[in-house]
Amino acid sequence: MQHTATSLLHRLLARGKFRHAQVLLQLAELGSVQRTAEAIGMTQSSVTQTLAYLEKLLEVRLFERHARGVRPTPACKDLLPVARQLLLGVANTAQIVAARQQQGDGVVRVIASASATNGLLIDALPEFSERHPGVQVHLGEAEGEDQLLAIARGEVDLVVCRRPPVIPEGWEFHPLREDRFVIVCRADHPLAQRKRLKWADVAQATWLLLPAAVAARQRFDELALRFPQPPRSHPVVTRSLPMMWRLLRLHPLLALLPLNLARPFLDEGALVQLRIGEAVRIDPIGLLQPKAGMAAAAVRLGEFLARRAEAGPSA
């Protein structure tokens, strides 16, 4: 018997349980009733009964049984992203309620780009937590479209990022910190001691490159047109921050990066900036926030970041 989406919704609201989503995800990941039972503290018979109940509730087969366990059907694979979001929402709810029970001042869900984390939040959040210990800040990292997707899903209260091409409806962007491209290397690189550099000097170096379509890579490709010969590059091309910092510290490489992305390593002296040519500015790091309806904890953090940014970073 076929059901409309509305009738299935009413059925799920009336008879569905969070445990169903948990069993669905664990079975799909582990492929075994026994391992699923062990992972979530149920008996094997309870897992089997829960699956049978869910398949009856939805009137669709979710797993195919085989000699070594189970495998998800196409219908199950369609449901997995929804089940993950459901459990994520449940986990966030538990965090928020726990914070309130501990007599806290609320929870702020923040998503930031890597440049925003390194250039602004890495110093600002510890200071904010010292001044407002009752506010829990849940920080995640995401770039571009993933930030907008989190907003659309209602998973975030504040986003610290560059201004997106399109501002989501009901949100506004406030710039907080200027940014520009810089050429960096480790402190003992031969070029680090040179006061006057020409493009021919850096053209002879070996470069650590970011992937195509990243703004820093596009800018590097433009600069490379000035080089007298094609630049040499390291065989690893990555935007993974741990890998980038490791390679820059291990090898005498140059990299063209946003200043805010490299700022912590420049501040501690692990990397140095090469001065060559005119500074090329890029969109500033800023705060993307709702125009109205923000919780008190989110307002407090947003105002703190704005005040702190007015002072500017260290030179």
Rank of each mutant, 00 (worst) to 15 (best):
G16R: 05
K17E: 15
F18W: 10
A21Q: 05
Q22F: 05
L24C: 09
Q26W: 13
E29F: 11
A37M: 06
T43F: 01
S45L: 08
V47A: 03
E55F: 01
E55T: 02
K56F: 02
E59Q: 15
V60K: 11
F63E: 01
H66M: 01
A67H: 14
R68I: 00
G69W: 03
G69M: 09
R71M: 05
L79Q: 04
P81E: 00
R84C: 05
L87V: 08
L88R: 15
T93E: 14
V97P: 04
A99I: 04
R100Q: 12
Q102Y: 02
D105S: 13
V107D: 01
V108D: 04
R109A: 12
I111Y: 06
I111N: 05
A112F: 03
A116C: 13
N118L: 01
I122G: 00
A124F: 05
S129E: 13
V135Q: 02
G140I: 02
G144R: 12
L149N: 13
A150F: 06
A152W: 05
L158W: 04
V159H: 00
C161L: 04
R162H: 10
R163P: 00
R163A: 13
P164D: 08
F181R: 06
Q193P: 00
K198G: 14
A203Q: 11
L209V: 12
A213H: 11
R219W: 03
F220A: 06
F220I: 01
L225I: 09
R226H: 14
P231M: 09
V236A: 12
P242D: 04
P242C: 08
L247R: 14
L248G: 04
R249G: 15
L250W: 07
P252I: 09
L253P: 12
L254V: 07
L254H: 06
L259Q: 15
N260G: 15
A262L: 09
D267M: 09
E268Q: 11
R275S: 11
I276W: 12
P284K: 04
G286K: 03
A292G: 11
E303F: 03
L305W: 04
A309S: 15
A311C: 05
G312F: 07
